[in-house]
């Protein structure tokens, strides 16, 4: 489904170049679940942002093979920003360590947020009941249907992360990208969130989960280690 080759990302700290990714190759098969392991600062989040079309790779000279992220025959590094927005809107769903829910919106509104960005006003209002029904169904599945009108501030961390997962799933993305989804949760709550990911995977969802917890990684089809800005076979 997705082939990333030779991904390079360098940050500038003052005048010094800090290479974070130095040529990452990664391919994701349809329905596959991949765990990305690596030390703190190894570039896991950076990789995820690149895969999700949120960040751009380095521009390289002609001497090196150009980085590319092929998604269903299209190179994300070459398409227009409008197409990239469209890609984020419809093809991927992000789940973050710190949930990143919008505090002003209710649970239901947070979940439908991605649908709102994907559809124009007219389309949205035409399909609103369907979108809401889908959001309710997702919230039902993650056990939060009684919290629909609550604000994020009124929820526990685990509940917030469930809402964030529902938000990521609302547009039925091809790829779910989760950046340490349990990193901010206690063991029990984290385990229940992981159970949720496992059940999603079983239902056929392709996903990449960043973590530095081995037990989390053990649940996925494949583990990828990020070391020194490259993927270490393992």
């Amino acid at each position: 489904m997705l082939q990333a080759t030779n991904l390079r990302k360098t940050y500038l700290l003052g005048r010094t170049k800090v290479p974070v990714l130095r040529g990452v190759d990664l391919s994701i098969q349809e329905g596959e679940s991949i765990a990305v392991l690596g030390a703190s600062g190894s570039g896991k989040s950076t990789l995820l942002h690149l895969l999700g079309g949120l960040d751009s790779v380095d521009k390289v000279g002609a001497d090196v093979a150009a980085p590319s992220i092929m998604f269903r025959g299209q190179d994300l590094t070459k398409i227009s920003t409008g197409k990239l927005d469209e890609y984020r809107r419809r093809r991927v769903g992000f789940v973050f360590q710190f949930y990143h829910l919008l505090p002003e919106l209710t649970v239901l509104q947070n979940v439908t947020l991605a649908a709102m960005t994907a559809l124009g006003a007219f389309e949205y209002f035409r399909t609103r009941s369907a979108v809401r029904a889908h959001a309710r169904e997702l919230l039902e599945r993650i056990g939060l249907s009684h919290r629909i009108t609550h604000r994020p501030a009124e929820l526990s961390g685990g509940e917030r992360q469930r809402v964030a997962i529902a938000r990521a799933l609302i547009n039925k993305p091809d790829l779910l990208l989760a950046d340490e989804p349990t990193g901010n949760l206690d063991r029990v709550t984290g385990a229940s969130i992981l159970d949720l990911f496992t059940s999603l995977h079983k239902a056929g969802q392709s996903m990449v989960i960043v973590t530095h917890d081995e037990t989390t990684a053990a649940r996925s089809d494949r583990i990828v280690h990020l070391v020194d800005g490259r993927v270490q076979a393992g």
């Binding site: 949120l54 973050f96 990143h100 960005t117």
Partner: peptide, 9 residues
């Protein structure tokens, strides 16, 4: 940032 992540241009 969140809005951009969920696809806002």
């Amino acid at each position: 940032g969140v809005l951009r992540a969920v696809g806002a241009s």
